[in-house]
Design a protein around this nucleic acid. Structure first.
Lengths: 306, 306
DNA sequence: CACATCCATGCCGTCAGGTTATGGATGCAG
DNA sequence: CTGCATCCATAACCTGACGGCATGGATGTG
């Protein structure tokens, strides 16, 4: 009695949506294909899993029993798969390091060079994470360590060391009324539209809108973007402004935007993080040590300030 | 990243055998097919799982990590599948009852009739279990209740009620020197060859050889059979003798064999069993009550004694 | 009554999984 | 040294499952 995890994913999607058509488009397949797959699963188990009606697909009792177990099965498979990949990268002497676009800055090359010197046989595999994952793959077990912004959700379950702390600045279109100011108090920005990360990024989303420094005032969202490039474009096109780490002024330069210091918002930190299970992992600990030894970098270093 | 449980079974088989050829024949597929499947799994995970050599297939580190997780995944899937089937039979108002060939005797029809009267909308699905499973599918969760021989391995984890107790007799070829005796002390049978169940039936195997009544004397195995039919045939053909419940003399008649009472072995019991989880299940409890109400049957009932 | 929204069905192209036959590498026995 | 057995890998082929498109049937809704 064999099943494909694909079939289980399909089932879970239909069970959750209660609707074949919507589930199909969520799964990027056609509705007839999904119809056939669900019927096949029912045939395989010899169980009627859904009652069909014009209202859609409703789980039967047995269907609910299956639906209760499937997410766990899929999660377990995912876990085993990650454990296998971890063992593989370990066997290949590869250290997987996740990072966020805004956290990987000029100190990264130095860290990697130091690690290469300390662990000659090893290679560092740097993996950029999307904004939607503030742990840069660490929480999911996809990487052995991560360079990221502090604080982040789920931080309590992980080990962290702060590497550097910097102020948050504001990014403005260069024709913005405030663009000429040398420094801007945050309250003056309260009513400005902001270019934000997608809401599903959760605490990360709130953090870069500095929600806790607004004294309850609502945030105006001017645009939502998924990556740094769209983000800068949206700002340059006047959809809104945004907060950014001061170092972004060196890395995310672009015509049409300017960076200005802001007062009244807490500074932001970059840290290295690793899972507690790696506390005794000599390789990960070597990497952490390289991070600490080479931070903060020389503040007047290679950066070409604006 | 989807996988079929079939692929995981294949992997587990190769990991365990350490040999593609043998694993393939255990899985009833050809060796090239298995070669391709294993390679595909390696491609899918992008991990080298085995090191090939003339000695066979040896797990790599990552391979061991995967091999550690796969049996759990397969067991979980099996569990979820059984839970779904249970819910389905429940929804269809079907009570699944496992039984062993030697336990389901003349009282079964009466029990089923009584249950049908008590639960009009329900149907009883009687399932004969192979000798290799003394719990008749109960331990595996394949049935809701079972009629079986006591004692059985794993009995502590299940609820049981004794329905009847009967002596163990001996089955002999009719030309056997002892066939003329009215009653036979067990020690006289110690050196006789026995027709036994397969060794994988474990405690069941020992029980019907009455190993604990032999005072340490070794058992002579004359033949091994998988089902009652082969078993009687083997005895009739002189491959050996066997113990059997007294009631078998009424149900397993056949030319060329005779049943005789034996002294010096403990009697055997038939019971009804159910999982603790069904303690509050009204349907299962009704079935148990029907069993108790209709046992022991009238000893001079419909049985046509030999 | 036309329309929208469900799910089911029929037909077809593609690809993955299986089979048999065969090859290459490496110990082992005579 | 040669022939043989035992591994796993490769090649060629067949079948069936999966997915896509087009369409049908059932049932509420404006």
């Amino acid at each position: 009695m064999d099943v494909d995890t694909r079939l289980l994913r399909y089932f879970a999607a239909v069970a959750q949506e209660g609707n074949l058509t919507r589930a199909a488009q969520r799964l990027f397949i056609s509705q007839p294909a999904l119809t056939k797959q669900i019927r096949q699963l029912e045939t395989l188990l010899d169980v009627r899993l859904f009652t069909r009606s014009r209202a859609g697909m409703t789980l039967t009792g047995p269907g609910r029993a299956l639906a209760a177990g499937v997410p766990g099965l899929l999660a377990d498979w995912d876990r085993v798969r990650r454990e296998t990949r971890s063992a593989a990268s370990r066997a290949a002497h590869v250290l997987r390091v996740g990072f966020l676009a805004s956290a990987a800055n000029e100190l990264t090359p130095r860290i990697i060079a130091a690690f290469a010197a300390r662990r000659p046989g090893w290679r560092v595999d740097m993996r950029q994470a999307p904004w939607s994952d503030p742990t840069a793959g660490l929480a999911a077990g996809d990487v052995d360590a991560a360079l990221l912004r502090l604080p982040f959700p789920g931080q309590d379950g992980l080990r962290t060391e702060i590497l550097l702390t910097e102020d948050r600045w504001v990014v403005l279109p260069d024709d913005h009324p405030l663009a000429g100011r040398a420094e801007i108090p945050f309250p003056e920005l309260w009513d400005e539209p902001f270019v934000a990360a997608p809401p599903e990024t959760g605490p990360w989303h709130d953090y870069w809108l500095a929600v806790d420094a607004r004294e309850g005032r609502p945030v105006r969202i001017g645009a939502v973007t998924e990556n740094p490039d769209d983000w800068l474009t949206a700002i340059a096109n006047g959809y809104g402004i945004a907060l950014a780490p001061a170092s972004a002024a060196r890395f995310y330069l672009r015509p049409g935007i300017v960076y200005r210091p802001v007062t009244g918002v807490a500074p932001t930190s970059v840290g290295v993080a690793w899972p507690p299970a790696a506390d005794t992992d000599q390789v990960v600990q070597d990497f952490v040590r390289c991070c600490l030894d080479h931070c903060p970098p020389d503040p007047d270093g290679p950066a070409d300030a604006p």
